[in-house]
Each structure stands twice: as structure tokens, then as C-alpha cells.
Amino acid sequence: SPISQSQFIPLGEILCLAISAMNSARKPVTQEALMEHLTTCFPGVPTPSQEILRHTLNTLVRERKIYPTPDGYFIVTP
């Protein structure tokens, strides 16, 4: 029987999409709110552990794709 394939999207890209959507909705993007958003909006995607989430967010900050503030994470705009 054929095996169904799913699209692979890197966690960093999913986080950027989620942060962008939450920023547009003016929702604060904390790590907890981000986990909740991922569970709700990406039900088929396994939720990352806190450690993996933190590591991926730090990587995105180093890559200058997002930036942290006391009010949460935001997408870097050119």
C-alpha cells in the first residue's frame, strides 16, 4: 500500500509564521503563548520540547530573523 507523504517544514519557519501571525493579531509572543499557538494552529505537527523551542528561538535571534523584547518576540522587518 502507498505511504502518504507529508510536507516537511523546518521548525524555524513554523515559528516565524506563528510569530508573524501573533504579531499581526497584537498577541504577545511569549514561549508559553507560542507553544499554545503551535498546538492550536498546527495540530498535525508534534509540539517541540521547551529546550528545542528555546534553542530554535535563540538561533532565529542570532540569524536576525526575530528579536526578543520584554513584551515578547517580534519579526525583524527590513
Rank of each mutant, 00 (worst) to 15 (best):
F8H: 13
V76I: 02
R64N: 09
T56C: 09
T56I: 15
T40Y: 08
S1A: 02
N23F: 01
M22A: 03
P43I: 07
T56H: 15
V29L: 01
N58M: 07
F42I: 13
T40I: 08
R26W: 05
L17C: 06
L60A: 03
V61W: 06
P48F: 05
Y73L: 10
I19W: 00
P46C: 08
H37Y: 04
V29D: 00
G72C: 02
R64Y: 04
H55W: 07
L60Q: 02
G72K: 02
F74K: 13
P48G: 02
P2C: 05
L34S: 00
M22G: 03
R64D: 10
C16V: 08
I3H: 11
I19L: 03
S4D: 15
P43K: 14
A18E: 06
Q50K: 11
R54C: 04
K65D: 01
S4W: 04
E36Y: 05
H37M: 02
Q50H: 11
L11W: 01
T30L: 03
Q31P: 13
L38E: 00
T47D: 02
K27Q: 15
I52Q: 14
C16Q: 15
P68M: 10
S49I: 00
S1R: 02
S20Q: 13
T39F: 07
P68T: 14
P78Q: 06
R62P: 00
T40A: 04
L38T: 03
Y73S: 12
P46M: 06
F74H: 03
L38R: 00
P2N: 15
A21M: 03
E32N: 05
P10Q: 08
S4C: 11
P10F: 10
P2Q: 15
R62Y: 15
V45H: 15
I3Q: 06
I66E: 00
P70N: 14
C16L: 11
E51T: 07
P68S: 15
C41S: 13
P2S: 12
T56G: 09
D71L: 06
L53A: 06
I14W: 06
P2G: 07
E13W: 02
I19R: 00
H55N: 15
V45E: 05
F8C: 06
P68Y: 05
E13H: 08
V76S: 15
H37A: 02
L57V: 06
E32P: 10
R26D: 12
I3E: 14
Y73C: 14
L34H: 00
S6Q: 08
A33Y: 04
T69K: 03
Q31L: 08
L57D: 00
M35Y: 04
E63W: 08
Q5A: 14
S4N: 10
T30Y: 05
Q31W: 06
V45L: 09
K27C: 08
R64K: 15
T30W: 09
L15K: 01
K65A: 05
V61Y: 03
T69V: 05
Q31H: 03
A21I: 03
A33Q: 13
T59V: 14
Q7S: 14
E63C: 09
S20K: 13
P78I: 02
R64T: 05
L34G: 00
R62I: 12
L11D: 02
M35R: 06
R64V: 03
S49K: 05
Q7Y: 09
R54Y: 06
P43C: 05
T69E: 07
P48C: 07
V76P: 12
I75P: 10
V29T: 04
S49Y: 01
Q31S: 11
E63D: 12
F74I: 12
C41W: 07
M35V: 07
S6E: 09
S4E: 02
S20E: 11
F8V: 08
P10E: 10
Q50Y: 15
C16S: 07
R26Q: 11
D71Q: 09
P48T: 02
Q5F: 06
T40C: 12
A25R: 08
G44Y: 10
Q31Y: 09
A18R: 05
L60M: 05
S1M: 03
L53I: 12
M22L: 13
S6F: 07
S20N: 15
L11F: 14
G44K: 11
L17H: 14
F74V: 12
E13C: 05
T56D: 08
P28K: 08
P78D: 01
P48K: 01
L17F: 07
V76G: 12
D71H: 14
I66D: 00
T39K: 05
R62F: 10
L17P: 07
S24A: 12
T77M: 04
T30G: 06
R26T: 12
E51F: 04
F8Q: 04
I14A: 12
I66W: 00
F42G: 05
P43R: 07
I19P: 00
T56Q: 09
E63Y: 10
E36M: 08
T56L: 14
Q50V: 05
I14H: 14
C16P: 06
D71R: 07
R54N: 13
H55A: 12
V45R: 08
T77V: 08
M22I: 05
K27D: 03
P48Y: 04
D71I: 02
P70F: 07
L34I: 11
L57P: 00
E51L: 05
C41E: 12
N58S: 10
I9V: 13
R62Q: 15
R62E: 13
G44I: 03
Y73W: 10
P28C: 06
Q50A: 12
L15R: 00
Y73F: 08
T56A: 09
Q31F: 07
Q5W: 02
S1D: 11
F8Y: 02
M35T: 11
I9T: 13
L38M: 06
F74P: 01
Q50G: 14
A21R: 11
P68A: 15
E32K: 09
I14K: 10
F42R: 12
T40F: 06
V29I: 04
I66A: 04
I19G: 00
D71C: 05
V61K: 05
L15I: 08
P2R: 13
S24V: 12
E63P: 00
E13V: 03
V61S: 12
Q50I: 14
L57F: 02
T69D: 10
R62G: 12
L60I: 02
A25M: 09
V29Q: 02
E51R: 03
P70L: 08
L17T: 14
R54K: 11
I14T: 10
S20M: 06
M22Y: 03
S1F: 07
L34D: 00
P78M: 02
P78H: 04
E63N: 10
S49E: 03
P28F: 04
V45C: 12
F42N: 15
E13R: 15
P48Q: 05
V45K: 03
A33G: 10
P43S: 11
H37P: 00
G72M: 03
K27S: 09
T59C: 15
N58K: 08
Q7I: 08
Q31R: 08
I3L: 10
E32C: 04
I75M: 15
I52H: 13
P68Q: 15
E36S: 12
E32H: 14
I52F: 13
H37I: 01
L17S: 13
S1E: 01
E36H: 07
T59M: 11
A18I: 02
V61I: 11
F42W: 07
T30E: 05
I52G: 07
L11M: 10
E51Q: 07
P48H: 02
Q7K: 09
A33S: 12
N58V: 12
L53Q: 01
Y67F: 11
L38A: 02
Y73G: 06
V76M: 14
T40D: 08
P70D: 15
C41R: 09
V29H: 01
P46K: 03
N23Y: 02
E36F: 04
L53K: 00
E63R: 11
H55P: 03
T56P: 00
P68E: 14
I66C: 13
Q31C: 15
D71M: 09
P48W: 02
N23W: 02
E13N: 13
S20P: 01
H37Q: 08
R26A: 11
T39W: 12
F74D: 10
E36T: 12
K65H: 13
L53H: 00
L34W: 00
L38P: 00
E32T: 13
S6Y: 04
T77R: 15
A21V: 04
V61T: 13
L15M: 09
M35L: 09
E36A: 08
L15T: 15
I9P: 14
